[in-house]
Structure formats: structure tokens, C-alpha cells
Design a protein around this nucleic acid. Structure first.
Lengths: 178, 178
DNA sequence: CGTTGAAGTCAGGGTCTTGCATGTTACCTT
DNA sequence: AAGGTAACATGCAAGACCCTGACTTCAACG
């Protein structure tokens, strides 16, 4: 239910990496270099995650997957593994449910989550950049203090303005992973 | 069964706020002004929270309470209510478990949580201030966008340096509530 | 002293984890 | 290039953990 609209570009499926849609290839390379195997379910999950482009819950990912292409438990385990190798970043809804976003080199994006609807909306560029700078500084301080495997979670919550919500959709919230 | 240690000061109850050890009084005033009742369990919970001084899980709070002074469910409900009126801020462990800190006017503090031990350590003053400034700016932008009841969660995680951990203890992680 | 919010109790939901048998991948041999 | 094999990954079932609701009983506060 995601992207019929977004995905009708020419080269969209897995194997053929031309140059535009290679995020999947990148992700697979990441998997390989981390010593993880590239399996059907993992490809399906990563594809869904990439297509989504925003923090997505495990349930959502699972629901998106073709049919019974992959067990829910597998999605949990994969996300856990992906997070460990830094392939995805974790964030949360206000209720604590985990959300995941692929992390392929590009810089983090930060978002606001509506406390009522869990809808996501992006922050503006400038703000994101400043936040990022600030957060990275903290992380480097931590590393210099001896902390390992540093990551962070930065999320904003609020009740979105009810009336004017039709125009702008989801976006995201958080982030993690140094 | 509330505060034998903290509360044995002369004026400990709500109304008469002298100036030193009044956090409990302040908290009660906050409750009152929000239209919530000041009950035994709530006082116990707030006392525990104040004494702890750092993000604490609901389980921990409940374990701290005297004996069967208050049901676990009640702690959950109270924390929910307290969060709603801004009396406490919420944060999370890396696994998503909620933590709470009393929020009595003083400014937020930010922290690092060890991914392995869940131990907390404070960030340094300067960093905290910069983070705070940045975060507050984001929140004011959100409010101007029409968001209501704005809050945030900012947490840093990492694996703490194993050897040199004895000297420095817990601190906290997060925060929330505009 | 009465109203009404809050606590206690019990049951249930959602999210995530574990254990074990089976299936697949990736490597190594021929 | 084909086949064999060890190890990792998956599916399935059960269950742990954290949190929320419904309902009755209790107590705060006017």
C-alpha cells in the first residue's frame, strides 16, 4: 500500500542496478561486508524499507511484504541484525514502538511524530542541519570519553494541527547510530 | 510511609513552600493546579522519583516504594498522568523501556546510556546547554507550525568503557515535554 | 458528608524474544 | 562448473515482558 505511485519508475526491481536505484545494492554490500548472508527475506525487507523512505514499524514492514514472503519473527530478527551492523537506525513512536529507517551513508533526517495519529512530518533543512551538527558533536565527545558503538535517538512529538493536515503527510522522527 | 527521610523537615506538605527542600511541595502544587488529587500513592511515587534524581523505570520506582504501598498499575497510571501535565519527562532505555524524571522547572539534563548495563552518565554542562538551545528552537518552530503539546526525546547510547566505570555512576538520558 | 477522581484487582493486548527443527546460502572440493 | 557441506537464517510455536482497560472499592477535597 505504499508506493504504486512512487514506484512506477522504469528500473525498480532488485537485481538490475543501473545507478539511480542502487540503494538495495548498497545495502547488500553492507550486509556482505558485515558477514551476513543475503537472503530472500532480507532483500524483501530492505526493499520495503527503502521504498518506504521513512521510519517504519516492524508491523508495517511485514504488512507491506508480498504475501507470506517472510515471517514476522524474521522481520524482528533482521531488524535487530541490521541495527547492530548500522544498516538501519531505530526510532520510536511516542508509545515506545520501534521504527526503523535504512541508513545508507546519507545524513540523518529528523522528524516530528503526531502523538495522536503517529503520522510523521519532516523538519526543515536548516533545523535538521543544526541538530545534526549538535548531535554529532556530542557523539564525538562520547567517543573521546571511551564510549563505543555510539548512537542516538532524537525525536520530537506533538499533537499535529488538526485542520491543516491533509496537505502534508508523513515524515519521520528519529534516528540513531553514530 | 512517604518520606521519613526527606520529609521529616518541618514544612513538607504542599501549601507551605519555604524554599530549600520543597521539590515535593512544588510537585504537589503542580498536581493541584492541574486538577489532580494529591494522594498517598502519588506522594510516595513523587518522593521516590525526586530521591532518585535520574531517569527511573516504572519497575524501579515500584520496587523502591516501601512495601505494598502502591500497586504497579497505579505507578503506570500516575506516570501517565504526570507526563500529561508535564510533571515528569519520559525517556527510554535502548530497548524501549520507559524512564521518567521529575521536571520541576529546572532545565533538562541530557545523558548517555550504556547499551549493555543501562547505566546512565551525564553529559557536560556546555554540551547540554547547546543541545537544549537547539532543541528548544525546534520546539518553538513546531509550535509556530501549529503543533500542540510539543515534547521531545533526546538520548545518546553507547557501550561504556569497561575499565573506568567505577568512578562515575548513573545519570540520565533523555527528556521530553516542551 | 457526598461527589468524584483515584487505587486495587484481574484480565487482556501488543510488542518483542526464545527454542528448536528445517531450509538456504556461501564456500570449498572435485 | 557441479556438487557437497557447514553454518547461518528462517519458520513456527510458545511465552516473556511491558503496558492498558474494565470494573469495583476507597479516599481526597469541597
Amino acid at each position: 500500500m505504499i508506493s504504486s505511485t512512487q514506484t512506477n519508475h522504469p528500473l525498480v526491481d532488485a537485481a538490475n542496478a543501473t545507478k539511480a536505484q542502487e540503494p538495495l545494492s548498497l545495502a547488500c554490500a553492507h550486509l556482505k561486508s558485515a558477514g551476513l548472508r543475503i537472503t530472500q527475506p532480507r532483500i524483501a525487507i530492505l526493499t520495503a524499507l527503502i521504498k518506504s523512505g521513512q521510519p517504519t514499524s516492524i508491523e508495517q514492514i511485514h504488512a507491506t511484504l508480498p504475501a507470506g514472503s517472510c515471517d514476522l519473527v524474521t522481520v524482528y530478527r533482521c531488524m535487530g541484525a541490521f541495527e547492530e551492523i548500522g544498516l538501519v537506525r531505530r526510532s520510536f513512536y511516542h508509545n515506545g514502538t520501534s521504527l526503523y529507517t535504512v541508513s545508507l551513508g546519507e545524513s540523518n533526517s529528523y522528524h516530528v511524530v503526531c502523538k495522536n495519529t503517529n503520522r510523521l512530518e519532516a523538519l526543515d533543512e536548516g533545523t535538521i542541519n543544526e541538530l545534526r551538527r549538535c548531535v554529532q558533536q556530542v557523539e564525538s565527545i562520547l567517543r573521546s570519553r571511551g564510549y563505543d558503538d555510539v548512537s542516538h535517538v532524537v525525536e520530537f512529538f506533538g499533537v499535529a494541527p488538526a485542520p491543516s493536515r491533509a496537505n502534508q503527510d508523513a515524515s519521520a522522527i528519529v534516528t540513531s547510530a553514530s
